[in-house]
Design a protein around this nucleic acid. Structure first.
Lengths: 182, 182
DNA sequence: AACATAACTGTCCGATCGGTCAGAACTGAC
DNA sequence: GTCAGTTCTGACCGATCGGACAGTTATGTT
């Protein structure tokens, strides 16, 4: 073959991104990537110094974009700061959706592979959080609460004592769902 | 030694939970767990049919608790449904915090291990989302938005078309942050 | 055509992994 | 003490992994 260097590199990155997003980083071998990209494993290691370097190259653009966003909002404050940050962050995550999925498929595969039916339960939880609504806005908000609480609970304890954390999580979640307290 | 069976089993589960939460499931070997628990790898496999069975046993209580919650709110609707679900879900995630961390440390380790300084950037993003506030409520809400947007973007596209998803994510995020539109 | 360089590959290596197995060590009942 | 049953272990196995390296093939320049 001996294509141009950049072409093969691009093909490898494309294959790696797709496979990482399906089987996770640790769940994808260099041979898997090589087979998908149509070259030998040795060829991979000619273009990239190691497996981790492939991952680094995949995630660097997203990291740079985030750094750029933070630079842009560095001078702002108050409402403008929050608005710009939120919009920029949302756009950023949508743009690098595949890269983000890459980070999560390790979890998804783990939750599925065994005899746990986590996905089914998650569906039920989503449904309840959305107040059984099938409308897009309610369901998006439900997804957000699902993820928000999940991640925030995994956070270091330093953020806030447990009682405060609990109260604020509940209040924020209800705000997210646009729920007016009864 | 030859302790009682249940004692050793408990010790193994405890070690596994802690190590999984630090190095992830795939990043923790049976030998690691055995060393930590103070027994041989072969002894692990005497008590548990395989590595996955250990993970299953660790996650089953959380799964059962979630199922119970869903049963409890099954008959509710409207505001009560949403409130009960949110509170129940928050309590549940806090109770099984270590188990949830287990699922995430794969990501955390991946993001750190390489030459990406993701954590630093995440701090900056958190700061901006909190409007530079150091108050606990603002910071908890910022954490929630961080996680919410991140996870929702990784979601299947079926939930909503991209334009709707974007608009709703922004609106929900601003609600979460208690930001009154200017 | 001859040559230097870039692109690529087959083959091998050491390490590590999850898991098996025969048998040793311990335990409690009698 | 004896013995059955439980608990535990060292040694081993096949598979797979990331990576190294010498050598081969293509490419472009003169």
């Amino acid at each position: 073959m001996a294509r141009s260097a950049s072409a093969m590199r691009g093909q490898i990155l494309e294959s790696a991104l797709r496979l990482f997003a399906v089987h996770g980083f640790r769940g994808t071998s260099l041979q898997d990537i090589a087979s998908d990209a149509g070259c030998s494993k040795a060829s991979l290691l000619y273009h990239f110094a190691g497996k981790e370097k492939i991952l680094t190259e995949l995630l660097t653009p997203a990291q740079d974009a985030l750094a750029t966003l933070l630079d842009r909002v560095a001078g702002l404050e108050g409402g403008r700061l929050v608005e710009e940050t939120v919009v920029g962050y949302v756009d950023l995550t949508l743009r690098f959706r595949r890269e983000i999925r890459l980070l999560f498929e390790d979890i998804a595969e783990m939750s599925c592979h065994q005899d746990l039916n986590v996905m089914e339960l998650a569906d039920g939880l989503l449904d309840a959080l959305a107040g059984r609504s099938r409308q897009a806005p309610a369901r998006v908000a439900a997804w957000m609460v699902l993820g928000a609480v999940f991640i925030t609970s995994a956070t270091d304890d330093e953020v806030a004592p447990d009682e405060v954390l609990r109260a604020e999580m509940i209040r924020s979640a209800l705000r997210t769902l646009d729920h007016t307290p009864s």
